[in-house]
Design a protein around this nucleic acid. Structure first.
Lengths: 220, 220
DNA sequence: CGCGTCATTGATGTGCATCAAGTGGTGTGG
DNA sequence: CCACACCACTTGATGCACATCAATGACGCG
């Protein structure tokens, strides 16, 4: 949490972290219906969150990586409303929410930080809604790749090389596409010399081309 | 804001409302890029919020009615990231956000209430993502109608009669459909005797049929 | 009353889903 | 260490739901 704070305040915030928890690949950190009492900050690893409809269709609502917060959905009803699954072995910090609220009352910067995290999530979801509501398959995939690389780059990873921790089906669920369409789109991008895909490994050769795809209205 | 509070605390919360603002039909309450300093609680009227992509496509992110809060998107970057347009003459309470944060530090119930409002918005958006990502046109429209009537009913309006304040195009934008598809779906529901639509006026004859459409996987 | 906006409906097109077959990589147990 | 099984992925053929294009109709407002 990058903020300008006194050392003592920083200490107190550190103390919110009561314990850490390891989650193995494909294990659930929490699931729909679990009672809510904490947020989770990812230390290492990679997660997906998903909701599902009464008739069983799953919608991946996001992919989360180190430094990101999960569990905000649980505040409103004291129950989690989505599932969080580790896509690789992971470690999270458990942040008891009552402690966060308590300390937020005393440390203004923390209070504002919490508000920002929630607002950021709302804005992120607006972006996903735009993607799901109005973009074509290629635009969705391009936007997805750009978003992933940007976030990875901010964490010190390469801008052009990445490992897809999730399956094509999970990507498809997130983007509102079928796994075959995701696969075909990757192949198309390869033909066009925009990316190199080899299983889970992806190399972006021409990021500008991806940006062009996202920012150009193919239709209308 | 329904909470159990002391009278004096309630008074202090009331005082957050520094002023009210009238917004005429089709006028903007705020727009993308405006600097953020307040949330808005709708007293009367009806709004839509929307984001748009760089190439100009608009995505309606929600329809808001009396009692609902707008502007949460602005917290993260101190700028609004969406547009809020009144779909009928409206009045809102201006809630300066620094005052909300100030008072939240002193009144626990208010703090938690604010957190819940933001969490509720996140959960709502998860639902929209599910709709946009995996539902068919009829399911989307059915879900939309049920959601609207449910919210109107909670405000004392009829469960079965409603006035669509938005155009078919705006409904379509929200649901990721074209206006013609929305229109055709309404016509289909009329043929099936599920609703009666006459311009902006809509009468739900068979709410159970709508629920069935939403909860039944047409495909997969 | 006439114009503009919004809505309906039909005809046609297409992007993605669906169905299906085959490949390669991975992990497991013999 | 290899053989087998399984899963993830790719790729092709086909179909369909919804978009697009187009024409007409119904309000409502100045």
């Amino acid at each position: 949490m990058p903020m300008d704070l006194s050392v003592s305040d920083l200490d107190r915030i550190e103390n919110i972290i009561q314990k850490r928890k390891r989650v193995k690949r494909s294990e659930l950190l929490f699931r729909h219906g679990d009672s809510f009492h904490a947020l989770y900050a990812i230390r290492t690893g990679f997660f997906k969150t998903s909701v599902s409809s009464t008739d069983g269709r799953e919608q991946v609502t996001g992919f989360q990586m180190a430094g990101e917060i999960m569990g905000l959905d649980g505040i409103v009803s004291d129950r989690h409303t989505c599932d969080a699954v580790a896509l690789e072995d992971a470690e999270v910090c458990i942040l008891p929410f009552d402690r966060i609220e308590e300390l937020s009352r005393e440390i203004n910067a923390l209070q504002h930080h919490v508000h920002k995290i929630m607002s950021r999530e709302i804005v992120r979801e607006h972006g996903v809604m735009l993607l799901l509501g109005s973009m074509r398959a290629e635009e969705r995939v391009a936007a997805f790749l750009l978003n992933l690389t940007q976030r990875l780059h901010a964490r010190g990873f390469s801008q052009s090389e990445l490992v897809l921790r999730m399956t094509r089906e999970e990507i498809g669920s997130y983007l509102g596409l079928k796994l075959e369409t995701v696969s075909r789109t990757f192949s198309k991008f390869m033909e066009d010399g925009i990316v190199e895909v080899k299983q889970k490994n992806l190399h972006i050769l021409d990021p500008e081309a991806l940006k062009l795809i996202v920012n150009t209205a193919q239709c209308e």
